[in-house]
Computed example of a mutant assay.
Amino acid sequence: MNDAELYNKSNIITKTDALQCLEEYGKRIKWKNGEITVLDIGCGDGGVTMGILKKFIPDNCERLVGCDISENMVHFANKQYANDHTSFMVLNIEGDLPNKLRGTFDYVFSFYALHWIQQQEVAFANIYDLLSERGECFLVFLAHTPVFDVYRVLSRSTKWKFWMKDVERFISPYIDCLEPEKKVKQMMTSIGFTSVEVECLHKTFVYPNLDVLKGLVTSINPFEIPKDLEEDFLLDYFNVLRDLRIIDHASSNVDGPTKATFNYRLIVAKGRKALIF
């Protein structure tokens, strides 16, 4: 998950859903008067932060910060997008927060990042601590996608199980949950968030060709597959997609124009930090 340049070219599903969710739910965000600070968690290459999120942030934003666990992604984002009011930093939202960041952001966003986190309570508690009083968060992440099904299938194969021993680390903790929105809302409320709204959307995304999907699969692959086995892994990956009827079974050419149709579940969550007396 460190090929920032490839990810920048391939993550069209993240950009599409970020835009759609902000257009549909962004009007519910109560923007403060005066200068504000904004954080984007799991910013990756910075493309969504600057190309989409920034367009929805009012002009009174004094500071926009993107953070990601990947040093390569952060380096790429700073090189491409950093300016006097925008910067990117390395931060593990599942780890210990630096004290200097606690309570410093009026708004926290995250798109397509939190499903990689297994310690959900830790991550959401950290988001709460990052927010200033009455600060708001707007979070978009996956409950299920066929990508997770592919990981599980390949991890059970004799051929790939050695390289995918920790497969569940890279699968959404909500994949087997029938009503993930209820679980997320309960967790956020127990942490202290108020005005909590959580929805689980059933969505479909069609990749126009397999080249784009191949780029995304390669750029987000979390497993350390040896270089000489990468092409073989990719072939098996796409064969599983065909078995799952994601890709037309009749197509045998990974680089061909065949479309791939993904049906997935997306969680949209919003909450506010309570006023501290």
Rank of each mutant, 00 (worst) to 15 (best):
I93H: 06
G34Q: 06
G95S: 15
I41W: 00
G44E: 00
T16V: 11
G51T: 04
S155L: 00
T258E: 15
G66E: 08
T14E: 05
S190V: 12
W116P: 04
K273W: 04
Q20V: 00
G215V: 01
F238Q: 00
R242F: 13
E62N: 07
L19T: 14
V153P: 06
D68Q: 04
D129H: 03
E133M: 10
G34N: 07
V206D: 04
L22K: 02
V206P: 05
L234N: 07
A82C: 04
A274C: 15
V217L: 12
Y237F: 08
M1G: 07
P226L: 05
W31N: 11
V268L: 14
D232P: 11
V108A: 06
N2L: 08
R156T: 14
M164C: 03
L97M: 00
I93K: 06
I175E: 09
N221L: 07
F141Q: 05
K270R: 15
Y128F: 07
N11G: 11
V38W: 05
M187W: 11
S70M: 01
K79E: 06
A143K: 08
D45S: 06
I267P: 09
T104L: 01
E133K: 10
L22R: 03
S251V: 07
G256K: 11
K55S: 15
T49H: 10
I267C: 12
L6R: 05
L22M: 01
I171A: 00
F124I: 10
G51M: 04
T86I: 05
L244P: 00
M187I: 14
Q80W: 01
Y174V: 05
P58A: 01
K259N: 10
M73I: 10
I13D: 02
E181L: 06
E136F: 00
L131E: 09
L91F: 05
Y264C: 01
I246P: 02
I13C: 04
D248T: 11
N60G: 03
T86P: 04
E94N: 13
E199I: 13
F76L: 01
P173Y: 02
L241K: 13
S252R: 12
G46W: 00
K100G: 12
W163I: 11
Q120P: 10
G271D: 08
Y107L: 01
L178M: 13
R102S: 12
E133V: 12
L216R: 02
M50N: 11
A18E: 08
P146A: 09
F111G: 02
E62W: 04
D96R: 04
K273Y: 02
I225V: 03
S252C: 12
V122A: 02
C43K: 04
L130D: 03
Q118I: 12
T86Q: 02
K27C: 15
F193W: 01
N72R: 02
K100P: 09
T261A: 09
I12V: 15
N99Y: 13
R152P: 07
A125S: 11
K203F: 09
K182Q: 13
Y174I: 07
Q20E: 12
D228L: 10
E23N: 10
K27N: 15
R28W: 15
D68M: 05
K159R: 14
L114Q: 05
K15A: 13
G42I: 02
Y264G: 03
N126Q: 00
N253F: 11
